[in-house]
Computed example of a mutant assay.
Amino acid sequence: MDLILWRHAEAEEGDPDMERVLTAKGQKQARRMADWLDAQLPDACKILVSPALRTLQTVAPLGRKFKMAAELAPGAGPHDVLRAANWPNGKEPVLIVGHQPTLGQAAALIVAGRPQPWEIKKGALWWIAQRDPKDPDSLYLKAVMSPDMIVK
């Protein structure tokens, strides 16, 4: 199974938190990452997105169908992310568009076996794969990508 953890792009500060919008820089980050992802993701990828406006704006340039998942809202825990994705037993790749610190904690839980304060930068993603859900040795980090690494 492939699990892609994509942190929302740069957003404005303010309240209410769920209604924060992307900055101009965040919109550029989202477009760059969406272009890169569109070329990499298989057609059968399931996309789950936090209901926060900034995550919806981050995924929009990808132009693919997605499902809003309340369990990915700010304040969710790393186990919530893994449950939503059906990690590691899912049959299709899953892209999660969410928030820090949850995504970094989920990455640490998968790779290191326990939640830790790993940081995923704004607009960046971690792509984790496991060939066999029963074989922890089949786990590998497929990609770590940030918008500033993508040359246009």
Rank of each mutant, 00 (worst) to 15 (best):
P42Q: 10
Y140I: 01
T58P: 10
P16N: 11
E10L: 13
W126I: 12
M149V: 03
W87M: 04
A85K: 00
A24T: 12
K28Y: 02
T23A: 12
V151Q: 05
L95P: 03
P136F: 11
A24N: 13
K91W: 00
A85F: 01
D35E: 15
N89V: 02
A106S: 12
Q100H: 02
A106G: 06
P61A: 14
P101I: 00
A73D: 12
A106E: 01
M18S: 11
M33G: 00
P93D: 06
E92A: 12
Y140F: 15
W87R: 03
L22D: 03
R7F: 10
G14F: 11
D80T: 05
A39K: 15
Q29N: 09
V81L: 02
V59A: 07
W126D: 04
F66D: 06
E13T: 10
V97E: 03
P51N: 10
V94Q: 06
Q100R: 03
L62A: 04
G14W: 10
Q40N: 12
E92G: 00
Q100F: 00
L103F: 01
L3Q: 03
F66K: 07
R131W: 06
R64L: 08
A30S: 08
A60C: 06
P88W: 04
K65A: 14
D135Y: 01
D15A: 08
A124P: 07
W6S: 11
A70V: 07
L139N: 04
D43S: 11
A124H: 12
A11I: 05
L48K: 11
R20H: 05
D80A: 12
L41V: 13
L139Y: 03
W87V: 02
V21Q: 11
M145C: 12
K91I: 08
Q27G: 14
V94R: 05
A70R: 11
D132E: 11
K122D: 13
K152H: 07
R32T: 14
L125V: 04
P42Y: 00
H99F: 07
R131M: 09
P101F: 01
D80L: 01
L141N: 04
P42K: 08
A112I: 04
A70G: 06
P61M: 14
L62S: 05
A52V: 03
E10K: 15
W118K: 02
V97P: 05
G123D: 06
A143Q: 10
T102Q: 01
P136Q: 07
I150C: 10
E71C: 09
I4T: 14
L82E: 05
A34M: 03
R32G: 14
P136L: 09
L125E: 01
P93A: 09
C45P: 04
A70L: 09
S50F: 02
A70D: 15
S146Y: 04
R54V: 08
E119P: 00
E12L: 10
L37P: 09
